[in-house]
Amino acid sequence: MSGTTSTDLYAVADFCLVPMGTGEPSVAEYIAECVRVLEKTGLKFKVHGYGTNLEGPWSEVMKAIHDCHAAVHAKGAPRIATDIRIGTRVDREIAPGTGNEGKVKRVEEILNSNKA
């Protein structure tokens, strides 16, 4: 993976970027700009109703969020507030691109086993 080091933690993140001071009731155009940035990163991401799941090497995840900020400012947002939650683990290997998917799958397995 480009730009990573052998000590770079694998991060599973969820972030919510909120453009402020735009004078518009919808932020969809600004979020679309952020998605354009994320598409160029090669990182796995999934946009949902109130944020974005993003995963990959810590340094690349943080750079992607930084680049989203820069792009949304360039689009005209004078202020941005972002909440970020990041999980890492070192007790086992996480295959790239499967961190969030694995978490959801494990919960679904538990729910399905309780139905039997």
Rank of each mutant, 00 (worst) to 15 (best):
M1K: 01
S2E: 06
G3N: 01
T4A: 15
T4G: 12
T4L: 15
T4I: 15
S6C: 02
D8Y: 03
D8K: 04
D8T: 15
Y10C: 03
A13G: 04
A13R: 01
A13V: 01
A13I: 02
C16H: 12
C16Y: 11
L17C: 08
L17H: 07
L17I: 14
V18E: 12
V18R: 08
P19K: 03
M20Q: 05
G21K: 04
G21W: 10
T22C: 03
G23N: 01
E24M: 00
P25N: 10
V27K: 00
V27I: 08
V27R: 00
V27C: 03
E29I: 00
Y30L: 03
Y30M: 02
I31V: 12
I31A: 01
E33C: 14
E33A: 15
E33L: 11
C34I: 00
L38Y: 14
T41G: 10
T41I: 09
T41C: 09
L43M: 12
L43P: 06
F45V: 06
K46T: 12
K46R: 05
G49K: 01
Y50P: 00
G51S: 04
N53F: 00
L54R: 07
G56A: 06
P57K: 07
W58A: 10
S59F: 00
E60L: 15
E60I: 11
E60D: 14
V61C: 14
V61M: 01
M62K: 15
K63Y: 10
A64I: 05
A64T: 06
I65L: 02
H69C: 04
H69N: 07
H69Y: 09
A70L: 15
A71H: 10
V72R: 02
A74V: 08
K75Q: 09
K75M: 12
G76C: 06
G76H: 02
I80G: 02
T82W: 13
D83E: 13
D83P: 11
D83M: 15
I84L: 12
R85D: 11
R85Q: 13
T88K: 05
D91G: 08
D91P: 05
R92C: 07
E93C: 01
I94E: 13
I94L: 11
A95K: 13
G97Y: 14
T98L: 11
G99T: 08
G102Y: 01
V104C: 08
V104L: 12
V104W: 08
K105A: 10
R106E: 12
V107G: 06
L111T: 05
N112S: 15
S113G: 13
N114M: 14
